[in-house]
C-alpha cells in the first residue's frame, strides 16, 4: 500500500496528478511528444498520428463501454459519420477545418444519442446488438446516399491552417496529437465530476443509481453522445489524415478493434484506453516485421499477414479477458507498485 501523502488543501487532493513524481513523468512525456516529430522519420510520424487517432476514438468508447457499461459495436461506424461530415463540409461548404471537426463531433454525437435510444427499453447485450444494427444501417447510408458519394466515397483536399496545406504527417502531427491530448484530458476531467460518477454508478448498479437520484435514460444518452462525439472527431481527423473516405473505411471489424483496444488496455481507466489503442495499433506493425523475417523462407508469408492479424486480434481479446481482465493498465499499476515499495518489499 501507498503511504498517504500529506495534502494541504482539498484542491490539491482533488488534482488529476497528485504526486510530484506523476507530474514530472507527465512533463517528460510531453517533452518527448514535442521533440518526437523532429527526430522521427516519416514512417514513425505516420504511426504516431494513427495511434493518436485511435487513442481518441478508444477513449470515447471507453467512456461508454468501460465507464458506463454500455457495450457498443458501433464505434467505427460513428467514426465514419464524423469522417463523412468532414469530407462533405470540405467539399460542399468549405468551412475551416476546426469548424469541420467540431461539426463532425456534434453530428456524430447526435447520431450516437439516437442509436442509444433503445437503451430506453433494453440493456446489456441487447443494446450491444442494437449498436450492430445501427452500424449496418449507417453503412447502408454511406454506400447508397449521393451526398456520401455512394460506393466510390469521397476524396477531399487537405486541411488548411493559416494558408498552409496540412498534407504531411509532420504537419498533421501538430494538429492530431494536441487534439487527442485535449480529448484525453477532457475524459479524465469528466470523471472528477458528477457526470462521470453517474456513469460509473450506472455501470455498477443501474437500478440503485436511479433511486439515488440519477435519471438513467438521460445519462445513458449523454454517455452515448459524448462517446460518439469522440468518435466523430477521431473520424474527422482520420479523414484529414487519409483524405479518402469510402464505405469500406469503417467496417464492423474496426468496431471490434476499438473494443479490443479498451479490453486489452483496461476498461474503465483513462490510461487503459491510451495503452490499449497504442498497443493494438502497433500489433499489426510488429506482425509485419515478424512476417517480413520469415518471408525469405515462406514465400506466401506476406499474404498470410491479414489473416494472422485477425487471429492475433481475437487471441488478444480472449487472452486478456481470461488472464488479465483489468488489462495493460493493471499491469502498469503493478509495475508501479513494485517500484514504489522496492527495495523494502516485493
Amino acid at each position: 500500500m501507498r503511504i498517504a501523502t500529506l495534502k494541504t488543501s482539498y484542491a490539491g487532493d482533488e488534482a488529476l496528478f497528485d504526486t510530484k513524481l506523476q507530474r514530472s513523468l507527465l512533463a517528460l512525456f510531453g517533452l518527448v511528444l514535442a521533440v518526437f516529430p523532429f527526430v522521427a522519420g516519416p514512417y514513425w510520424l505516420f504511426m504516431a498520428c494513427l495511434v493518436a487517432i485511435n487513442v481518441a476514438s478508444a477513449t470515447g468508447l471507453n467512456i461508454l463501454t468501460g465507464y458506463t457499461g454500455l457495450v457498443s459495436l458501433g464505434q467505427a461506424a460513428f467514426m465514419g459519420v464524423g469522417a463523412y461530415t468532414v469530407a462533405i463540409l470540405e467539399l460542399r461548404v468549405g468551412t475551416p477545418f476546426p469548424v469541420n471537426l467540431l461539426a463532425a463531433g456534434a453530428t456524430t454525437a447526435l447520431v450516437g444519442a439516437v442509436v442509444g435510444l433503445p437503451s430506453l427499453r433494453v440493456k446489456g447485450l441487447y443494446l450491444a446488438i442494437a449498436t450492430i444494427g445501427a452500424s449496418v444501417i449507417l453503412h447502408f447510408v454511406f454506400a447508397n446516399w449521393s451526398l456520401t458519394g455512394e460506393a466510390r466515397g469521397l476524396s477531399m483536399p487537405p486541411a488548411r491552417l493559416f494558408g498552409n496545406d496540412l498534407d504531411q504527417p509532420f504537419e498533421l502531427y501538430w494538429v492530431i496529437v494536441p487534439i487527442t491530448a485535449a480529448m484525453i484530458l477532457g475524459a479524465a476531467n469528466l470523471f472528477r465530476t458528477r457526470i462521470g460518477r453517474a456513469f460509473i454508478a450506472i455501470r455498477d448498479r443501474d437500478i440503485s443509481a436511479e433511486v439515488l437520484g440519477i435519471p438513467l435514460l438521460r445519462y445513458k444518452l449523454t454517455s452515448f453522445a459524448i462517446s460518439s462525439f469522440y468518435a466523430g472527431v477521431a473520424g474527422g481527423l482520420w479523414a484529414y489524415f487519409f483524405r479518402v473516405v469510402t464505405p469500406e473505411s469503417f467496417p464492423l471489424i474496426n468496431s471490434i478493434f476499438y473494443l479490443a483496444a479498451i479490453i486489452v488496455g483496461g476498461m474503465g481507466t483513462i490510461l487503459g484506453g491510451i495503452l490499449g489503442a497504442a498497443f493494438m495499433t502497433m500489433v499489426p506493425e510488429v506482425l509485419k516485421l515478424v512476417v517480413g523475417w520469415f518471408s525469405p523462407y515462406f514465400p506466401d508469408a506476406l499474404a498470410a499477414l491479414a489473416p494472422i492479424r485477425t487471429i492475433v486480434f481475437g487471441a488478444l481479446i480472449v487472452g486478456f479477458l481470461i488472464f488479465e481482465p483489468q488489462g495493460l493498465a493493471e499491469i502498469w499499476a503493478r509495475v508501479r507498485r513494485f517500484f514504489h515499495l522496492w527495495p523494502f518489499k516485493t
Binding site: G124, A128, I256, T310, G314, I317, P325
Partner: peptide, 26 residues
C-alpha cells in the same frame, strides 16, 4: 469465464469469432 459479467463472456465469443475468421482465411 464462469461468474464473470455476461459482457465479458460475450466479448470472448467476439474474440473467438475473429480467430476463426483468421484461421479459415489462413
Amino acid at each position: 469465464m464462469l461468474g464473470e459479467s455476461p459482457i465479458s463472456v460475450f466479448m470472448v465469443t467476439v474474440g473467438l469469432g475473429s480467430m476463426l475468421v483468421g484461421a479459415v482465411e489462413l
